[in-house]
Design a protein around this nucleic acid. Sequence first.
RNA 1: GGAGGCAUAGCUCAGUCGGUUAGAGCGCUCGCUUCACAUGCGAGAGGUCGUAGGUUCGAGUCCUACUGUCUCUACCA
Length: 870
Amino acid sequence: MLEKTYDPSSFEHKLYEFWMERGYFTPKAEVGKPYFSIVSPPPNITGQLHIGHGLDNAIMDTIVRFKRMQGFNTLWLPGTDHASIATEVKIVEQLKKEGIDKHDLGREGFLQRAWQWKEKYGGRIVEQLKKLASSCDWSRLAFTMDDKCSEAVRKQFVSMYKKGLIYRGNRIINWCPVCRTALSDAEVEYAEQDGCFWHYGYTTPDGKTTVTFATTRPETMLGDTAVAVNPNDSRYTHLVGKTVIVPFVNREIPVIADEYVDMEFGTGVVKITPAHDPNDFEVGVRHNLPVIRVMNDDGTMNENAGEFAGLDRYEARKRIVARLKEMGILQKVEPHKHNVGSCYRCHTTVEPIVSRQWFVKMQPLAEPAIQAVRNGEITFHPERFAKTYFNWMENIKDWCISRQLWWGHRIPVWYCDDCCAEICEEHDPDVCPKCGGSHLHQDEDVLDTWFSSALWPFSTLGYYRDSDDFKAFFPTSVLSCGYDIIFFWVARMIFSSLYATGQVPFRHVLMHGIVRDEQGRKMSKSLGNGVDPVEFIDKYGADTLRFALINGVANGSDIRFAPDKIDGTRNFMNKVWNCGRFVLMNAEGKQLVPLSECKLSLADKWILTKLNSVIGEVTELLEKYELGMAAQTLSDFVWSEFCDWYIEFTKPVLYGTDEIARRDALSVLCYVLDNILKLLHPFAPCLTEEIYQAMPSHGESIMVERFPEQHDELRFDDDASLVEELKELVTKVRNVRSTYNVAPSKRIRLYVVPYDERIRSCGVYLAKLCNLEETVFAPAPSDEKTVKAVGVAAACEVPLGDLVDFAKEAERVAKELENVESEIARAEAKLSNQGFLSKAPAQLVDNERAKLAKFRELQAQLQARLDELK
RNA sequence: GGAGGCAUAGCUCAGUCGGUUAGAGCGCUCGCUUCACAUGCGAGAGGUCGUAGGUUCGAGUCCUACUGUCUCUACCA
């Protein structure tokens, strides 16, 4: 028997242990069997569980449990990510607190610390994920730096290198002076900042002409190697080919003409710093300009900066401006808002710097990746995210994959100190294959963490090891993640998988939004507005967390995680618990029979019909990955139909004396509850299992039961429609009671004049739900003062004696009449429209006619009543 | 600069293929310690679906423009 109060903490953990012991999460790799597979986005080992993981896992677990119950061989593979830069930043911080610089430890020592970190925090996040009741297969737990994944990284790199898709080159990259590493374009965040425009100019050697320009980064002038104008700009044509002098470094640089310069903008002159600006770099390549770096890796000025060498970049900027002013060169300073890029890990302003790095050539990889989505091999949910994807893929630039870090997959390239050969093989070389020399050293850099994440769907399944897992579960069925990592991850998995395996990594991409606070703000540490899922689960339970994140939420839209929504969800869980208690308390010790042996009552037929259609709707919605609507459909059914009406319908029988009727009612109650629990299990796994285990005839576990299917033999449309009429009537009678303040406890007499004769069979329900002491199927005697409640099935009269206020009643009836008349007008207009009659589906026209007839009948009733009252 | 989202009840949001009287939760009003649940029950009030056009027999839903708002993306020195 269930406890009186719903206390999730008393059973959630126990049930999770039970499922794990039984091995329900661990499928066998059976090649050729219908399967369903998800490979989890691996959380960073830096972190702890946050609400976004909660959402991600709630979605995946719901789908996975549904598919498992449908009989698919279902795998959900979890893992963690080494998160190269993020983790290294954290460890460096930790070391700093101990007063240690990472270089003091050396590479080996540092990596040792990193692996310790991984053991500690990687384990912690796994334990936290388990609290969500996620049914993932922990026996297959993967890590982006485990042997399998490292092997995949190595093979992919070598293969791409040999095909010329990975190359090393001097390019402008985004440099973080604090992390002291290159970053990919995707790792830079832009934000508008207040800055300045400094206007000044360079003068020709003869001192006669000055070309004026504006810049936001004056310190880069020390690396200027040209001044550019537009070739069509008549103001400057006479200067092209002349030279000007850069102050401080006294470099003589040419004035060049290049289409890149916008004549309309500013003075139409641009100073060109090929080493520190992506566009300038391109100009430099076209004009063969020298590339002069003026900054060190830590953001200080280098030896090329002359008198400013050694200064921090911002200090240098200040000094340069001051000096320019002093020298009378500075003409104007304007405030200027511009977008400044910063490191996505440490938020330092990044510096575009020319640097020798490793890149992936994207053009040839992007092409098939675009095709796979265009031709429907991969579907985005919602579809609009495909547009975002195309937008990025079609304008993609080469991907900078080398990072000047230690924690990560080291670039598998060796250089021969003797002959300068570059060696990239699957196995570490001992000697140089070119010169036979043994003086080799490995590239110092590691790979972008997303390089290994990109291989995740197939590396974890053991693609490179010819594994059964890969054969049984690939391509994976669904990828679920937030829309914020489409570029970082989704896109890169698609082209990486197509390249390596020739197959898409997944069939469906299910995108969800960001969880925000009550006011719609992002949850963040600095705002302190985050909800800690672990604390939340301790208080409300995993089921409530999951359901609150899923119920009623449309795919791809952000979620406001507000307290009243949480309360509502908790209340629903409590409701389910209590309706379970109600059924089980009544069923305890009673003999139940299969539905086929029951004499079904009207109410039974109605709820079974409703159940049947809910099964259809929920299944269809889940198959379309519309989890939010599926959950809502289900909770509406449970609360508004099963609890509010059906349970009330059964009470007269359960508390009655007819043993057979009681047995049958209980059998139906249990049947419907059993189905509800199964339908609800993917969303609220613990609650449903706990109730299920208390059911009279339960199996081993609800999670290995079959998901309910529709049964047309349990559909009784006519009876169901009668019950809908009954419900309407009950509501109207209650309305009268409420309007006239008839105490709910007072039992009254009701006169009923049926329009639908079948309503005569509903006396017992009417009596219970309207609290009647007597139901008379006849009009009220003329001397009795009554108030009428008119429905489709009948006109009821509630005797109220002196309570009847004729003016009030007339008002009430008039209002109802008004509604009905506006409906009649609407229906008449529709039916007199020739276009509607000839073009609309016949069914629709018939419906409209039937409606009109009903409304006219109602109108007559109400009119008569109104006349009577006047 | 480019792309996309959103605009529906006081608030937060659903609304699938264009087709019942546009829904829910919260809030609000009135009533109820009814033997599963006051984390509850019953009855209500509350919407010209951002604006203007268009397509259609029929538009919250499709098209065009506009207004407001948010996000992504690129980047002008």
